[in-house]
C-alpha cells in the first residue's frame, strides 16, 4: 500500500506563549477532501500554519508525514515545491512587486525543483490566461502589485489562481470563504473543485458549513481546544450548522474532565 498523502500524529504546537494544538491526529489519502470546522480559537489556523511552516508556530510534539516524508523538517519553500499549498486567510499585500512577476517566479521555482524547464514569458502568459478564466480574475490584477488594493474577493481569487497555477498535491484552504459574498464563494469553490482529482488531497478549513455546499467533503472533523473532538461524514457539517458549536464544546469538556 502506498503511504497516505498526509499523516498527522499527535501534533502539538504553541503560538507565542499559548499552547494551541493539543494532539492532532489526521490522515488524508490521495483523492480525499477533508473539512476541519471549529469555533474561533480552536486552533484551525494554527493547524494550517503548522503544515505550511509559518514562523511563530512552534511544534512541540508529534509528527507530520507528507507522501512519506517528514514535512516538519522542510523549510516553507521546500514544502511548497514538494506540492503543499496554503491558501491564506489573510493574503499579504506586497507593494512594488507585480502579481505577474511573483507568480512566474513561483511557478518556475516549482518547475526547477521538479527538474522541468522554466516557463518563458509567453508560455506563462498563456497558462495564466487559462487559469484566470476559471476564477474570473480581472486581467489588470496581474500587472498590479501583489494583493495591493485588491478587494477581499479579489484577494481570495488570487489565492485560488495561485493554487491552480502551482497544482499542489495537498491544498490547505484556510477560511478561504471568510468575507466572501455568495458569487465570490462560488467562483472560489469552482477553482478548488477544478483541482480535485484522484491524486490530490484537500484540507478545507472553515467556520461555516456554507463553503462545504460548494466543495463537498469526504470527511468532516470538528476541532475544539486544539483537538479533533468529532469526525464524520458531510452530514456532521449540517449538524453543526443547526446546533452551533456549543454542544461540541460542552461534550469535549465533559469528556476531558
Amino acid at each position: 500500500m502506498t503511504s497516505p498523502l498526509l499523516e498527522i500524529k499527535g501534533l502539538t504546537a504553541t503560538a507565542g506563549e499559548n499552547q494551541i494544538l493539543n494532539g492532532i491526529d489526521l490522515v488524508i489519502q490521495p483523492g480525499e477532501v477533508h473539512a476541519v470546522m471549529g469555533p474561533n480559537g480552536s486552533g484551525k489556523s494554527t493547524l494550517a500554519g503548522a503544515l505550511a511552516g509559518r514562523p511563530g508556530i512552534e511544534i512541540t510534539g508529534g509528527s507530520v508525514f507528507y507522501q512519506g516524508k517528514d514535512l516538519l523538517g522542510l523549510e516553507p519553500e521546500e514544502r511548497a515545491r514538494e506540492g503543499v499549498f496554503l491558501a491564506f486567510q489573510y493574503p499579504v499585500e506586497i507593494p512594488g512587486v507585480t502579481n505577474n512577476y511573483f507568480l512566474k517566479a513561483a511557478v518556475n521555482a516549482g518547475r526547477a525543483h521538479r527538474g522541468e524547464e522554466e516557463l518563458d514569458a509567453m508560455d506563462f502568459m498563456a497558462l495564466v490566461k487559462e487559469k484566470a478564466a476559471i476564477v474570473d480574475m480581472p486581467k489588470d490584477l496581474m500587472s498590479r502589485a501583489i494583493n495591493e488594493g485588491f478587494s477581499g474577493g479579489e484577494k481570495k481569487r488570487n489565492e485560488v489562481l495561485q493554487m491552480l497555477l502551482l497544482e499542489p498535491k495537498l491544498a490547505v484552504l484556510d477560511e478561504t470563504d471568510s468575507g466572501l459574498d455568495i458569487d465570490a464563494l462560488r467562483v472560489v469553490a469552482s477553482g478548488a473543485n477544478a483541482l480535485r482529482d484522484a491524486d490530490r488531497g484537500m484540507l478545507v478549513i472553515t467556520h461555516y458549513q456554507r463553503l462545504l455546499e460548494y466543495i463537498p467533503p469526504d470527511f468532516v472533523h470538528v476541532l475544539s481546544g486544539g483537538r479533533i473532538v468529532r469526525s464524520g461524514g458531510k452530514e456532521l457539517a449540517l449538524e453543526l450548522e443547526e446546533k452551533g458549536y456549543g454542544w461540541i464544546e460542552d461534550a469535549a469538556e465533559g469528556s476531558a474532565s
Partner: peptide, 24 residues
C-alpha cells in the same frame, strides 16, 4: 513567509521584497 509559501527561496524572497520597496 507568503513568498516562501509559494516556493520562492528565502534569499530570493528577500531580494524581491527589497526591490519592491525600491520600485516606487
Amino acid at each position: 513567509f507568503y513568498l516562501r509559501a509559494r516556493g520562492l527561496g528565502e534569499e530570493e524572497a528577500r531580494r524581491l521584497l527589497v526591490s519592491g520597496f525600491a520600485a516606487e
